[in-house]
Amino acid sequence: MKRGREIVGIVGKRKPDSVCKTSQRFDRMVNKKNKVKGNKDIGLSVTSRNKEVNLAQSETNQAMTNEQLIEQLTSANPDAVVKQGSQYPEITVAHDKLHAFMQNIKSDSSLAFDYLVCETGVDYPEFIQVVYHLESTSHRHFMVVKANTENRETATLDTVSDIWPTAEFHECEIYDLLGIRFNNHPNLRRYFLDDTWGHPLRKDFHDDIHVVER
């Protein structure tokens, strides 16, 4: 508390050109912060195998074809199911292996899927599916990852919000509309509706009071 007030006082005395200084100071802070964050990432997720890949890849930094991409993914994860003939490379992962898989494809520098474009929940008769659209901003790959929950009644899945921060909010939306609980989510709350509502995007949602059906 005290520290914040002191700093405000100093800035207040500055001349008009202090804007630049402030921004420089902030840049330094952000850099410092990102450095810490980066170290944490490497410490947690990159395995020794990936470090070798990192060195090899840095020389030939170019995009793979979709076939190469799928080949690399399936060789590392033999259980994953690949769908043929779809619009984008598409892979279905078991729900208990989702988090490890996601962490791997983000930290692996030859894949580097660092941009979560879209996260969707789809309700099927036996399970609820979560679809992740992922892009790599360095290689410009695009890929679809799918994960199914075990059942519809107690639908749970691991969160990926520690890997991509934007997932935190998409997951809240999915929880609100489809009722999937995400394990380890920092702040799972309903965004659009309050607690008295059901989950409207489920196929068995029925509401005589609010909905006029046609």
């Binding site: 509706l193 409207p200 949602f205 509401d207 609010h210 909905v211 006029v212 059906e213 046609r214």
Partner: peptide, 10 residues
């Protein structure tokens, strides 16, 4: 939003 919408007041 009259038909099939669950959240709009008619």
């Amino acid at each position: 939003f009259y038909y099939n919408s669950y959240s709009i007041v008619k």
